[in-house]
Amino acid sequence: MSRPNFVPPVERVVNRDVDPLGTFDDGAGPKFRLNFEPEERELLIRLLGEMKDLLTAEVTEVTAPLLHRLFPPAFRDDPEKEAEYQRLMREELVTSRVVSVELVTAMLTADPDTGRLADLSKPDTMAFMQSLNAVRLVLGTMLDITDDDSAEQADMDDSHEFQLYGYLGWLLEWTVQSLSETA
């Protein structure tokens, strides 16, 4: 994932008069509506695309810590079992993440006729949460947020990258709360 140069709409986000994620019930169960500005959608789609590339990227000095975080070891003290787990599960985990990224990218793409996003089901919204979290995890790893102290410092850093990290966290928190409030 490249260093983002986008200025996240944090100030506007804080003052926005519409929730980023609205919840309603159409009689057939809970539905979720993403209330995003076009630039927010474009930002998220770009970040998702970069993560998708990363999922199958070669291991280099830059990608290694990010891939390690996306594909952590299942067996910490048993290299043999770990190799077997990676052999059996790694590809499946890549596929699962790619499918989720593609699904969420489609959710964030407006209908060309109406210019609007489709309303989401609960499983859709869970996929959104999962991919949003993965993007934030990669960004946080890039920003060297490796312990609780650096996490606290990140809250105070107002560079663009940390603002973006804060924005993703804010959006994720909204998503988790919205999901938690539905049965």
């Binding site: 952590p72 070891p73 299942a74 067996f75 910490r76 787990y85 499946e92 985990l93 699962s96 979290n133």
Partner: peptide
């Protein structure tokens, strides 16, 4: 346990088994 770890990894939690 492997299935649980896999699903936790899908959700990017730092999970392992022993």
């Amino acid at each position: 346990a492997e299935m649980h770890v896999f699903r936790l990894h899908e959700h990017s939690l730092w999970a392992s088994m022993e």
